[in-house]
Design a binder for these strands. Sequence first.
DNA 1: TCTGGGGTCCTAGGACCC
DNA 2: TCTGGGGTCCTAGGACCC
Length: 430
Amino acid sequence: MNPLFALVDVNNFYVSCERVFQPKLEEVPMVVLSNNDGCAVARSAEVKALGVKMGTPWFQMQDLARKHGIQAYSSNYTLYGDMSSRVVQVLKAFTPNLEVYSIDESFLQIETVLKQYQDTIELGKKIKQQVKDTTGLPVCVGIGASKTLAKLANHLAKKHKQFAGVCDVNAMTKPELYQWMSETQVGEVWGIGRQIAKKLKAQNIHSVFDLLQASPQGMRQQFGVVMERLCYELRGTSCLELEEVAPAKQQIIASRSFGKLVTSQAELAQSVATHVARAAEKLRAQNSTTGALIVFIQTNPFKQYEPQYHQSITIPLPDPSDNTLTLTNAALAGLKQIYKPNFRYKKAGVILNLISDKPTMQQSLFEDVETKGKSVHLMKAMDSINTRFGNAVLRSAAAGTNSTKQEWQMRAGNKSPNYTTQWDELPVAR
DNA sequence: TCTGGGGTCCTAGGACCC
DNA sequence: TCTGGGGTCCTAGGACCC
């Protein structure tokens, strides 16, 4: 059976969440603002109709806000997270084959549940109604033979009233589908951003239909394998599978921009420490540790005429850790190295690189050495790695994992007092 | 004056090995 | 001092997503 995907997406998610709890806001033009009330991260339909783009700074829409009575709300992510999981619960009742794609979107694989319904549209309507009844949130449902087509269908369902919020491109006749595709800008396709859209337009590829006619192999040559997959997906060949279990995170980021610009190292340190604490909490929540941490600071890129500085530094940790104090000390030492006085900083943050399940080559080598070091002799183990993989791998195994060079030398020294060979002089295998 | 905070994947190029 | 082809790993940077 060919796969069939449904994308269920809450309309204006943050705005709709606020409206569930404040029904008087229904039909009031409104936006939800980012941190520091900087820019609009969600817009109601009324505001979208006024041409306000996603991410527009609040201060830039003051005139418009006064003229049309646009209300602004600070974001409340705890509330949105809670509403999101309620929606997912409702969807899971339709099928367990579900991927939570983002806070307001889920993919469902529906070809197996379809026989209980007259057709896909009926299923879509049921989903829509059920979510509305249970959570109060409005959704649109898009259905297609690939995730990309389901996304496209969802876009059509949102944009065009005649679909009444449910659109199945798979059920359309070819001429009908091609008609819709030629009326839709290529930039609306999932995976086509601003840069690629620009390049495509330079080649006279303006609509989704234009892209459909392009050769996938040719697109691969120019744009890479992601683009090739995308082309096949548009043609109805599913290349992207449902990811029911979320893959483990590879990094954790904690950062914020400042309400007002800061200059002193002490203030930056204060903020970095806060970010580390938050990141470490997330780290422990998922039972993980980090082997390296990145600190970054930057000035305000929008202030064109001010001197700009942005810098980051990676601090490897001697041992993987989830300890707030350890991480904070490492981060502050890093900050000290990249800090430059006299700049006016806008943003600071930390990134934790997680130890992944799939060990890198270095990590497994390191473990290899650890075990052997206990039973045979650390030096012999190192030799064996040197012979099998070469000196560089051996060195990077020490540098890149959890152990410092000194530590290795010391351990080797403990086992063998006569061991005097310098690290850099280890024999190179041929 | 005021411009978010997360994330992912892919590629290219350099260093190094056999 | 000159020389090849195939491979891996790492990093930086670019592009994308919500």
